[in-house]
Nucleic acid binder design. Structure first.
Lengths: 329, 329
DNA sequence: TTGTAGGCGTTATCAT
DNA sequence: ATGATAACGCCTACAA
């Protein structure tokens, strides 16, 4: 656990010179540089981050708050974030919250205490007050999910437009009885937007909505269970709109068990376009979010927000999406 | 960006007293405590982490190095780690390396500079020298994958025993031509152990091995492609042993495309027991690792290694596994 | 080119 | 119960 003055002592120079060598700053003669490097080597000296960071304004670390690491959907977003970070000399740290508010606020301490320079929120669940308070004082960007009336910046997609396109497609194909299936996480904005668009399109065509509350799980079980219930009570349903392709996979399993053909008897459309959409049989029509772009853009704003103090205005970026039409409709 | 002395000034006390209030250490009279808290509130004072950490031996942070966040297989491990950490007052930070050595060594700096107290390596790809050097000087534990002759501690499972059980099962069912399918990541210990066990069991029964090099991808494509190649050249193959259930899913897709029935015509067994094993049709026989336990145990050792300086001996823990027999064999 | 010294924000020891 | 002060390890004017 050697520190800079031990190196200085061994190399017979001042700590200032050692610091110069370590950071390649200032001018140091080749000979002294050699002596210093030799001493560093001998003592296996490693600068202590806390010492130097105490003198700097930033730590170069940013925190990404995720729900968990078991959802392939988030992978591209994280990659986009990391790619941007890497080319700009920042480090990305990820934390998982499992939707637990106490874990969330725990990790928020990291930015409040300046352990990290900023935070990227992916599918956060904090309250409007907490978020607003946070975002006015620290660099924060919401990615994908967001709180509608928050002061915090965000990068997301137009869930409403994507849903309209999806449902209009089903209606155009002749479907009159379309069900809405989700995991029961009603509070998240994506679910709200999707429901709203779904209801609007149906109303426009004078069609009835079908929706029942489901379990709050990852998706598969929700899909399987809700599809069964819906078909028992409303056998006339001919199409399912699922909020994620994992839910869609669950629906598919129920239909398979009931010997219902897809897309001949029933159609399914969904969101996320993860590996599940292409692995399932039949393959699923699904809305793709450009996660990589979403992540980079979010980092880009966060980066500027961190380094330019004037850059404080709320930014709302809406990125394009892509609908992949496949065999399930 | 107020600091402790501004609070002291406003509250008309010394910085020492403010510190006492903040950390609930020492005795402070109720009245002064109130004054201090009021000042804290007014200035929206947040202690600066770098300042206090500079004075402490540990940061309470540990780093988990992952390949990426798009593999559901790692989720339980991370949960186990976080659960242990939480009950022991530590914070978990995750970093992704995508198998890139430069990213790995970049993140290793975090422990070398004492930004984090220790590191958990999940499926790392560093060299033996780097790892040994690291583990003698800093708290490090390998989880699941490991370097065979390293000085570093590890928590893993007996890949060899699990494979023997799997393959013996196939042989007992009458299979004489069993192929080994993997992603081509030959260097990782799990692949090596699996291959070794596979070869041993076949040799014991006088059976021929089948294996061809494949692409280095996540798994699905490897499985699909290799199954096709193997069946073209060796149609007598009646069973596939896949190193992951995502590979198995790929194999399944090829068999489906070739109109081959599973398990009637061909059998498949695999590892990981992720969601893919139960989502696929037919469901897959797969080896389950108790990831949660693996994570907790690794953290337990790391924790002790960090806080008890005498606790430096190499620890090799081998946890039990479970084979789930399903419809694919 | 190199050294001196002050300060970053906090905690802890030692007085008072 | 409270205050003064010396670290913690590092960087960087400023001086030499």
């Amino acid at each position: 656990m050697s520190s800079i003055d031990q190196v200085a002592l061994l190399a017979k120079v001042s700590v200032a010179t050692v610091s110069r060598v370590i950071n390649n700053s200032g001018n140091v003669s080749p000979e002294t540089r050699q002596r210093v490097l030799a001493a560093v080597e001998r003592l296996k000296y490693q600068p202590n981050a806390m010492g130097s960071l105490l003198r700097k304004e930033h730590t170069g670390m940013i925190l990404v708050m995720l729900h968990s690491v078991d959802n392939p959907f988030f992978a591209p977003i994280v990659q986009g974030i990391e790619s941007y970070a890497q080319t700009n000399g920042m480090n990305v740290l990820i934390s998982t919250t499992y939707g637990d508010p106490s874990r969330e606020s725990h990790y928020l301490e990291l930015v409040k205490t300046h352990f990290v320079d900023g935070i990227l929120l992916i599918a956060n669940t904090m309250t409007l007050e907490v978020l607003n308070e946070l975002s006015t004082r620290f660099p924060v960007v919401q990615v994908l999910e967001y709180l509608e009336d928050s002061e915090a910046s965000r990068v997301t997609i137009d869930f409403h437009a994507a849903t309209v396109e999806l449902i209009e497609g089903l209606v155009a194909k002749g479907h009159r009885h379309i069900a809405f299936v989700h995991t029961g996480l009603e509070h998240i904005i994506s679910t709200q937007k999707k429901r709203q668009a779904y209801v609007e399109v149906l109303a426009k065509h004078g069609l009835p909505p079908y929706e029942i509350p489901g379990p709050h799980d990852f998706g598969y079980e929700s899909g399987a269970q809700l599809a069964r219930q819906l078909l028992e009570t409303h056998p006339q349903i001919s199409a399912f709109f699922a909020t994620s392709d994992l839910i869609a996979t669950g629906i598919l399993s129920t239909l398979e068990a009931m010997d219902v053909q897809v897309p001949k008897d029933k159609a399914i459309v969904s969101f996320d376009n993860t590996v599940f959409a292409t692995l399932s049989r039949p393959t699923l029509t699904s809305v793709e979010v450009n996660g990589y772009e979403l992540g980079s853009q979010a980092m880009d704003y966060l980066f500027r927000r961190i380094h330019q103090k004037k850059y404080r205005d709320k930014v709302c970026l809406t990125l394009p999406y892509t609908i992949h039409h496949r065999d399930s409709e």
